[in-house]
Amino acid sequence: MEKALVINPDKCTGCLQCELACSYENEGVFNPSKSRIKVFTFHQEGRFVPYTCTQCSDAWCQQACPVDAITLNLLTGAKEVNENTCVGCKVCTISCPFGTINYNQNTGKVIKCDLCGGDPKCVSACPTQAITYIDANQTGMEKMRQWATETDNSPSNSAANV
């Protein structure tokens, strides 16, 4: 069964452990600015919202990539950036309507959540279970994906079989 990240902002305390775990796992440093999951702060509402890639099925980043550097990991369902192929043109970063694929100026490549190959470190780092990794079809992820297709409402709605 394919699993997905499920984020429940109500449980998030804004401790940023997820960002530290992510940047350490993927970049080798404890640096939230290099994290692929970001916690957004809403002071007025006293609310924290962790947010990262939803691994959409018809991924805009993947389609927009001119050199086929973003591919599907068949085991995890993640869309992964192949660092050796990415030329750093950044077209994916403007194509993703969620803003969850970003340019890393240090490497000249883009980075995005790859579910840590099936063992997402943000999940194990989260002390309040605001981020969990569970069966994909039980999640709100479908709702998110649905919204993704609405956003650019053209192909996906009518092409569920594509």
């Binding site: 970001k38 950044k90 970063t93 403007i94 194509s95 993703c96 309507p97 969620f98 803003g99 969850t100 694929i101 970003n102 340019y103 100026q105 919204w147 609405e150 956003t151 650019d152």
Partner: peptide, 14 residues
């Protein structure tokens, strides 16, 4: 500005 810049497309197109 490069971080999360794709949301601009999401906000406009959505």
């Amino acid at each position: 500005h490069t971080q999360n810049i794709g949301v601009v497309r999401g906000l406009i197109r959505g």
